[in-house]
Design a protein around this nucleic acid. Structure first.
Lengths: 140, 140
DNA sequence: ATAGTAAATAGTATTATTACTATTTAGGAT
DNA sequence: ATCCTAAATAGTAATAATACTATTTACTAT
């Protein structure tokens, strides 16, 4: 968590109790927390926090590459994960929402270079593989 | 459009006027249509269509690989694009939402194989590069 | 052509996500 | 310690996306 907060300080962002609480909640909730789960966790220590603050800080973290947002189909909304040293992506079941990490990233520096040639300053990328997990495949 | 409708028939899905209208709207709106834009277009020919139907059919098309959904940050919501013969991905400006096609896909069959080894039946994948377009970069 | 059946729809409700505004606060300078 | 200013927040509002139920409709077999 300190790593996350230090990165924010280094970029000149203010350190508020709410921001600290969101960071702490991300660590506490572990992988794949939804905004609602984070809100519940944050309220334990900071009761008067608003959902807006959760999303605002999550967006900031994502923009800075500190957190990864995973696009999930279905009703539970997207999930968030603290970016680890091992940059990676995810498998998502389009039936039950089960999510698993894929332990590597198939995007090469050459790919990023091709994107940059298009006059885009690339900050991050999102990659999700959608399909059916074993359970949903056999049940289907 | 016929290609799209034929693919649906081949899979045994029913052909309703609403479904036809959504398909037609996707063609008419061209690249990067939002659900709202599609609803407006569909209402021109089928006034009593519900937003639910738009989303339901879009989800179906996406699931069948006929349409690609692009995850956009910000207020306008996601955008949809008819899948072309040339499978490709997108660059998205996280400031203004401007979206451009990248004319290829960096995901190899080896990557898909690695995903399948995890007991997932992979149906599709989403890849977006996020950053700042030339305009937002210089304005920023 | 008619009837049966499962899929699709309309209309509404619920939840997720983003935006807006007035107010508060963190961090820097004094 | 106090003041200043821009950033951050709470609370609310607005929009996007999904879900639910009763009803309708496309397709199949007759």
């Amino acid at each position: 968590m300190e790593k996350l907060l230090n990165a924010l300080r280094a970029k000149g962002y203010k350190m508020t109790p709410q921001r600290r609480a969101v960071a702490a909640a991300l660590i506490k909730c572990g992988k794949f927390a939804t905004a609602q789960q984070l809100l519940l966790q944050v309220k334990q220590t900071t009761p008067d926090v608003s959902l807006d603050t959760i999303y605002r800080n999550l967006s900031l973290f994502v923009k800075l590459g500190l957190v990864t947002e995973i696009h999930l189909p279905g009703r539970e909304g997207n999930i968030f994960e603290v970016t680890t040293n091992q940059h990676h992506h995810h498998l998502v079941c389009i039936n039950c929402g089960k999510t698993e990490c894929l332990d590597y990233c198939p995007i090469s520096s050459h790919d990023l270079e091709k994107a940059r040639e298009r006059d885009f300053q690339i900050i991050s990328h999102a990659l999700e593989f959608y399909g059916y997990c074993r359970t949903c495949r056999t049940a289907g």
